[in-house]
């Protein structure tokens, strides 16, 4: 008799806990989104975050994009050459980059590079009472700290994603045209005919905007709710990377089903 009751009680408290944290997350989200206009008014704060989140993420995005583009066309070529259609390698690479790999891989890298940094920064700001000090100086952390970071993520991630795609296509060009001997003209015309601006490029950008919101909110939320100790902050950082990566993959599936 005791066992099932305990079991039910455990499930109950789990569900309540889950609902509570979802409620907390939603409340946090709306309180930041409400003050988003402020992020644009304080342009210098925004610029600083764009630098930290965007410019400093460039090296990893450039490297990753280049290699992903090269590997994709190597693999694609090996398959396509059996069907004598190796000139399609350009359009194949471009489509997979624009529709999926660009937004998703950039999102994952962004979560690892910038999201984790955001969580650690906010967590430390809280544990050193900097957030409390801001509140005491009548400066709303929502406006001063969180909103600029969310806005910067939304601006930066689509750009990073497009850069990733562009560099990936260059990598693909070098491999397929420069090394494997695909005819230059076919490589580009195939790409031009198969890639559609609205269906592919715009949808890819929309995906990365969703991912930016996801990563930024998860990172900020984890930072704000981190236990203010070094151990708590390090655990929150890990959570940020895991949760936002899984979130990106899940969200990507949903968006792909809806879009294509």
């Amino acid at each position: 008799m005791q066992m099932p009751v305990n079991f039910l009680a455990n499930i109950g408290s789990l569900v309540i806990g889950l609902l509570q944290s979802i409620g907390k997350a939603l409340f946090f989200m709306t309180s930041i989104i409400i003050v988003m206009p402020y992020a644009i008014k304080r342009f210098n704060l925004l610029l600083k975050q764009i630098y930290f989140l965007g410019v400093l993420s460039l090296p990893i995005i450039l490297t990753a994009g280049f290699f992903v583009g090269m590997v994709l066309s190597l693999q694609g070529y090996l398959v396509l050459v059996d069907f004598n259609s190796e000139e399609a390698v350009g359009s194949m690479t471009a489509l997979s980059l624009i529709r999926e790999l660009g937004p998703v891989v950039t999102g994952l890298l962004f979560a690892g590079r910038a999201g984790s940094a955001l969580t650690a920064e906010i967590g430390l700001m809280r544990s050193t009472e900097q957030i409390s000090a801001l509140e005491m100086m009548a400066v709303d952390p929502n406006k001063f700290v969180y909103a600029p970071r969310l806005a910067a993520s939304i601006i930066v991630l689509p750009m990073l994603s497009m850069i990733f795609v562009a560099v990936g296509i260059i990598g693909s060009y070098l491999i397929s045209v420069g090394w494997l001997g695909v005819y230059d003209g076919f490589f580009w015309t195939q790409m031009q005919t198969h890639v559609d601006w609205n269906n592919d490029v715009i949808n890819g950008i929309i995906k990365s905007i969703f991912f930016a919101v996801l990563v930024a909110l998860v990172s900020l939320f984890q930072g704000v709710n981190a236990i203010p100790t070094s151990e708590g902050v390090s655990r929150a950082t890990t959570k940020t990377v895991v949760h936002s990566s899984l979130g990106i993959l899940g969200l990507d599936f949903l968006l792909t089903v809806l879009m294509f």
Partner: peptide, 13 residues
């Protein structure tokens, strides 16, 4: 209209 000196200082790093 309130000022607070935090025990830890709490300067913006």
């Amino acid at each position: 209209v309130m000022g607070m000196l935090f025990q830890s200082g709490a300067l913006l790093t």
